[in-house]
Design a protein around this nucleic acid. Structure first.
Length: 284
DNA sequence: GTTACGACCTGCGAGC
DNA sequence: TGCTCGCAGGTCGTAA
């Protein structure tokens, strides 16, 4: 599932291949892929045709391409989204949703999404802080740990004011962005915290340790090209990452804890799974 | 204002 | 073999 490291891998690939490329045609093959765009498929295509891609940026799991008109093409991969660079005669993917061609580049850009939780839309760029523009639809997203201006102290301060469970807070993209189910479980395992620990009961030092572990585990994953459980997560060239073998909790139900040997358990949490060591990560 | 929860969506695998 | 059902989970809207 694309979380911060996986989206960053895609962003880096896109920055390499589509910067300074001029969009010629845009074909929308599934309406849900542009559900956050207020216009029609045709107007989406018309608004993008002729635009030059200047930069490829990211905040948390949101990615956007800054366009020559001053607007942005915003992309969220959702659960199964991929942005692929393909040769012009490439067989269309089963779940190809949007196809882009360029006037000064022979290859195509394909937005592929099996579960259609992801999508693209066009947005205005607005001031976020000094010399920093973000799409208006991304304004509410907090800085992620890869952001040079990310301040762990501020996150910890806000986190400790919340009245909720620690994992729920980690997944709150308005508090700290980029963390999804996989890296939340890994950070909690490294910090020896149960997912249901109340945020109000966590010391400042422990909360800082947790944010530090979240940052570390996502940096390690980025260095390995991200985490892949299946063919749903790949980079722009269709290659999978290798961090799955670096995981200590997520997806390891009934396997021994790397620290104490007890078998990892799976709990149901927020209608999804949460993996933890029953000895290292006890509640209270 | 804050928190909790259901809905959205599709392919895959387990179970019958 | 073929069918049904549960599961995967990021985000948003709505209810409390």
């Amino acid at each position: 599932m694309p979380e911060l490291p996986e989206v960053e891998v895609v962003r880096q690939g896109l920055a390499e291949w589509v910067t300074n490329k001029k969009i010629e045609t845009v074909t929308v093959l599934h309406p849900r892929a542009i559900r956050n765009f207020p216009g029609t498929k045709k107007s989406f295509s018309n608004q993008l045709s002729g635009e030059k891609i200047l930069t490829v940026n990211r905040r948390g799991k949101y990615m956007w391409m800054e366009l020559s008109s001053g607007r942005a093409l915003v992309t969220h991969l959702g659960m199964s989204g991929q942005v692929l660079i393909q040769k012009p005669n490439h067989e269309p993917e089963n779940h190809l949703r949007i196809r882009f061609t360029f006037s000064n580049y022979k290859n195509e850009m394909h937005f592929v999404d099996q579960r259609t939780f992801g999508g693209m839309h066009i947005d205005d760029l607005v001031d976020f802080s000094a010399d920093e523009l973000v799409p208006s639809s991304v304004q509410h997203i907090a800085r992620d740990p890869f952001d040079p201006k990310f301040e762990p102290d501020q996150v910890v301060e806000k986190l400790r004011l919340k009245k909720t469970e620690i994992k729920r807070a980690l997944l709150d993209q308005t508090l700290v962005s980029g963390i999804g189910n996989i890296y939340a479980d890994e950070s909690l395992w490294r910090s020896k915290l149960h997912w249901a620990t109340p945020t109000s009961g966590i010391s400042k030092a422990k909360a800082l340790e947790l944010i530090g572990h979240a940052t570390d585990v996502m940096r390690e994953a980025l260095a390995e090209g991200g985490t892949s459980f299946d063919s749903l997560y790949v980079d722009v060239n269709g290659q999978s990452g290798y961090f799955e073998r670096g995981l200590s909790a997520y997806g390891r139900e009934d396997e021994p804890c790397h620290r104490c040997g007890r078998l990892i358990v799976r709990d149901s949490f927020m209608n999804r799974s949460s993996f933890r060591c029953p000895r290292c990560q006890r509640l209270g």
